[in-house]
Design a binder for these strands. Structure first.
Lengths: 160, 160
DNA sequence: GCCTCATAGGTGTAGATACATCCATCTCGT
DNA sequence: ACGAGATGGATGTATCTACACCTATGAGGC
C-alpha cells in the first residue's frame, strides 16, 4: 500500500526527530566538556577505551554505530592530543589497536563530573522513561550495522 | 550529591545513545534519498518549506533545532541546486526568506515515496511506541534553543 | 607456493554541525 | 535625529559523518 505518503506525514519524520534530539543533546554535552578540551564524541571514545581496554578501529566504529572511516579520523584527533595511542596488532598487521593513555585517563576523570551534570539535568528534563526509551532505541539490533544495511552491499548470490 | 559519577555510568550516556540512533536513522534515509539527489537534512528542509511556506533562516534553524550558522550553509546547498530561492524580506533588510521552487516541489514529490518506505520500515523495526517516544523527545521544550542553552550567553544581569 | 576473496584501514570528497566573531540593520529611548 | 543594544545573517575554523575507492594483509582452496 502507501505508494506515496502524504506530505503532511513528514511532520512525523523519524530522521528529523532523531537529529533534533541528538543536536540538542550533543550541544549540551559539548558545552560542558569544552572546559576539558573534549567533544562529546571524544569523551565517549575515551570512556569506552577506559572501560573495555584496547579496541580496534573497527570495534570502536561498530560500538558507536558509525562508519569505519569516520572512526579513523575521530581516533586520529584524540591521538594527536595524546589521549590515546595506536599500535599495530601483534598477530594481524592490518589491525590497529587503540588504547587510552595516562593523560587520556586523567582527562577522562576530570571530565567525568561535567558529564554527570549534563547527564543528570538532561535525564531530569526529559524524564527517566524517555531517557530509558532512547537508550533502548540506540541499543536495538536494527540500529546495528549489518541489520538492513547490507542490502546495498550487492549480495544477490543464491545461497552462499 | 554525585560529585563525580562512576565511569561505568557512562555506559548510559544519553549523548552516545542519541548519536547512535541518529547516525543509524540518518544513514537509512540518506541511502534511499540518494537516488533523488537529496540528503535527509535537505529533504526535511524541502518538506518544511512546502508545508509551512516561506521561512527565514532563523525560523528554519529553530524548527530543526540547529544553529543559525548551520542553516545558512544548509540553505546555500539546496539553493545552488535550484531547490529553493532566497529573497530579501520586504520590510526588514536583515532577513532572508527561503521559499521552495517548482523544481524543489517536484524533487520533494518524487522523494516522498522513498521517504515513506524508510519511515515505514524503521517504524516497524523500532516499534511504534519507540517511534512515538523519539518524536515526543524531539518535540519537548528542553530541546528548544533558549531552554537551558542561554545559560552561557552571559546574561548574569540582576533582573532584566 | 599461488591465486582469489575477504577483511582492516586510509584517502578523497562532500555535507552537517556549531562556536566565535563580524557586519548590516532594526528598535527604542532620549 | 542619534546612539546603544538587539537582531538576522554570513564567514573562519574545527569536528563529525559517510560513501566511493584504494592499499595492504590474512585466510583458504588447489
Amino acid at each position: 500500500m502507501s505508494t506515496s505518503p502524504d506530505l503532511i506525514d513528514t511532520a512525523q519524520c523519524l530522521c528529523l526527530a532523531s537529529r533534533r534530539a541528538s543536536r540538542a543533546i550533543t550541544r549540551a554535552f559539548d558545552r560542558e566538556l569544552r572546559a576539558h578540551g573534549l567533544r562529546a564524541t571524544q569523551f565517549t571514545l575515551l570512556a569506552t577505551l577506559s572501560l573495555k581496554g584496547g579496541q580496534t578501529i573497527g570495534e570502536l566504529a561498530e560500538f558507536i554505530v558509525a562508519d569505519r572511516t569516520t572512526m579513523t579520523r575521530n581516533v586520529a584527533l584524540i591521538e594527536e592530543k595524546g589521549l590515546v595511542e595506536v599500535r599495530q596488532h601483534e598477530d594481524d598487521a592490518r589491525v590497529r589497536v587503540v588504547t587510552i593513555t595516562a593523560w587520556g585517563r586523567e582527562t577522562l576523570a576530570a571530565a567525568l563530573a561535567s558529564w554527570g551534570e549534563v547527564q543528570g539535568s538532561l535525564t531530569e528534563a526529559m524524564g527517566t522513561s524517555a531517557a530509558d526509551g532512547l537508550r533502548r532505541l540506540a541499543n536495538s539490533d536494527w540500529a546495528r550495522p549489518g541489520a538492513r544495511n547490507d542490502i546495498k552491499q550487492g549480495r544477490r548470490e543464491t545461497a552462499a
